[in-house]
Design a binder for these strands. Structure first.
Lengths: 115, 115
DNA sequence: TAGTTAATTAACTTGTCGGTTAAATATAAG
DNA sequence: CTTATATTTAACCGACAAGTTAATTAACTA
């Protein structure tokens, strides 16, 4: 179905196992076996999770003898952060004067549309 | 299976239709029909998307005669932003060990305004 | 009351996801 | 050459996601 980049990244992150893997990789590279150790699931299951993360560009993998060390790649996280920028104003506690003004304008639009 | 909050939010966002709905709601409340208008899909399909967004806490819904106006709720987005904090250092320009060390030393500076 | 509009629910189809076990591949080490 | 270790691939399964059409609920309107 050829999903867009952001959807691929977000759905890769929408799994606690995969987020835990990323958290582990934040403290350094690791092999598949090392990454699998904390989880109560088979190695092929972890291997699949890694493939999902790799397709999302969230990890990259090297070759070192029979090991395939995984490394965190944060680019896609940066993209999510950029997307969130569109909404920062909606969760910021205190609006400054400009924000309040824009809110008022917005309410005006809404009333116009309804009448 | 009782998914965790963050997984629910991320999977709700991992769909371009739902993100488009949120984008629309960023400019004000809207009814289901208004939200459905831009999409080439049936109304029940949109209704389902809205239910997913509501369960994730990303929208709330009012009652106004036969309309059910939808409103953006950004709390869960704030949570994602907080989660991303764990990784900011990985996409910021300089992230070698020395720079990380210097960053830690500088953490007295509070104002992390975006560029 | 009947009819229209807004939205949801029900029932169903199809495809993907996350897991399994068993087999295959690749490299290293005796 | 054989065996052990690390990892992936294959085949399969149950659950769920995303869409459909048809029926239902809810509120307004003539």
């Amino acid at each position: 179905m050829t999903q867009d980049r952001l959807s691929i990244t977000l759905s890769a992150l929408a799994d606690p196992t995969r987020r835990a893997i990323l958290a582990r990789l934040a403290s350094g590279e690791a092999s598949v076996n090392e990454l699998a150790e904390p989880f109560a699931m088979s190695l092929p299951a972890v291997s699949k999770h890694l493939k999902v993360l790799e397709k999302a560009g969230l990890i990259s993998r090297g070759r070192e003898a029979q090991w395939r060390p995984c490394k965190l790649e944060a680019g896609p996280l940066k993209d999510i952060n950029a997307w969130l920028d569109n909404y920062r104003q909606f969760w910021e506690e205190s609006f400054d004067r400009l924000d309040l003004y824009l809110q008022k304008l917005q309410k005006g639009d809404e009333n116009d549309r309804k009448s």
